[in-house]
């Protein structure tokens, strides 16, 4: 394969491997690794700064972790004024992950950051909709479509919608995101989980957690396979990717790009290694373009 790049709404990513939101800070900690990736997705940014949840914020189980960071982030203003200038100087495509607790916060964040040198936006629809009972925005296809459309109206850069698979069919919400004008969907975010201590009380300071890591992979792959068959926009596969083979599986199932999350907590260069591993596997397969790989799970022989 000569050209490894992938495009979203005209924006070129040098390769299909991205660092996932919340597991790569702002891409600044390991700049040399960031530079080898197709791009990085920032920690979720909210309108107001957030202190996050009390500790403990992480629990390990065989094959994965639960986290309850609680979206600790500097908020829109400090992110834009203090963090973004350094992030923009990275020379890596930076997708800003934005999160909100009311529908209007997503397009506000996108609108205000659209003047900045960012590659695009990822809408994290997994937060509870505080004004409406607290179910996540991403659980309601109508809200997904509405929030996506409003964000779409504020930018010409790629808008990616990150879907949850918690108590909702991501096929329905992916279709809603497509209808709202999304350029891609990320499948999937963490799954709900609960860990208890010996006294039967919640272990995590935030009570419930989000499950990630290798244990997530079969379910995430299943979701990608179904979503990719249902929508016409690119799918970004995410969930339990640890090495090149995992990434290859997600591309085969229909993903155009992948994100590496938890693996980076264990090996800072995990995402770069995923890319080298994937490239080698594709070369061994004799692939001439990504089209030879992407979606081959459902292709007739």
């Amino acid at each position: 394969m000569k050209n490894h790049s992938v495009r979203l709404r005209g924006v070129e990513f040098a390769n299909p491997v991205l660092a996932a939101s919340g597991t790569w800070e702002f891409g600044l900690r390991f700049k040399a690794v960031s530079a080898r990736l197709g791009g990085v997705v920032t920690k979720g940014i909210t309108v107001e700064p957030r202190a996050g949840n009390p500790g403990p914020r992480i629990f390990e189980f065989p094959g994965g972790i639960l986290n309850s960071v609680g979206l600790e982030n500097p908020g829109l203003e400090r992110f834009r004024d203090e963090v973004l200038p350094e992030v923009a100087a990275l020379g890596t495509r930076v997708i800003v992950n934005v999160a909100g607790f009311e529908p209007g916060e997503f397009d506000r964040l996108v609108g205000e950051l659209d003047r900045e040198p960012v590659a695009g936006f990822e809408l994290n629809l997994s937060c509870p909709n505080v004004g409406h009972g607290g179910a996540a925005f991403g659980q309601d296809p109508k809200l997904v479509e509405d929030i996506t459309r409003r964000a779409r109206a504020r930018t010409d850069r790629p808008v990616v919608v990150k879907l949850t698979a918690n108590f909702t069919d991501p096929v329905a919400t992916a279709r809603a995101a497509e209808a709202g004008g999304a350029d891609a969907v990320t499948v999937i975010n963490t799954l709900f989980g609960l860990a208890l201590n010996a006294n039967g009380r919640p272990f995590l300071g935030g009570r419930n957690g989000g499950m990630s890591g290798p244990a997530l992979k079969p379910f995430a792959l299943y979701c990608v396979d179904r979503v990719a068959a249902a929508v016409g926009i690119p799918v970004i596969g995410c969930g339990g990717i640890m090495d090149g083979r995992d990434a290859l599986d997600f591309l085969s199932a229909g993903a155009a790009l992948v994100q590496v999350g938890t693996a980076s907590l264990v090996e800072p260069d995990a995402a770069a290694r995923v890319w080298t591993g994937l490239r080698r596997l594709c070369r061994d397969l004799g692939a001439e373009s990504w089209a030879d790989i992407v979606g081959r799970t459902r292709r007739e022989d």
Binding site: T23, N53, R57, I58, V69, L265
Partner: peptide
């Protein structure tokens, strides 16, 4: 010696409550 995720500053899983708010 409290819980950590990465130990390298990328995950925000280590948090000690700071006097006056925040972690």
């Amino acid at each position: 010696e409290e819980r950590m995720g990465c130990g390298t500053g990328i995950c925000y899983c280590c948090a000690l409550p700071r006097k006056g708010g925040g972690y």
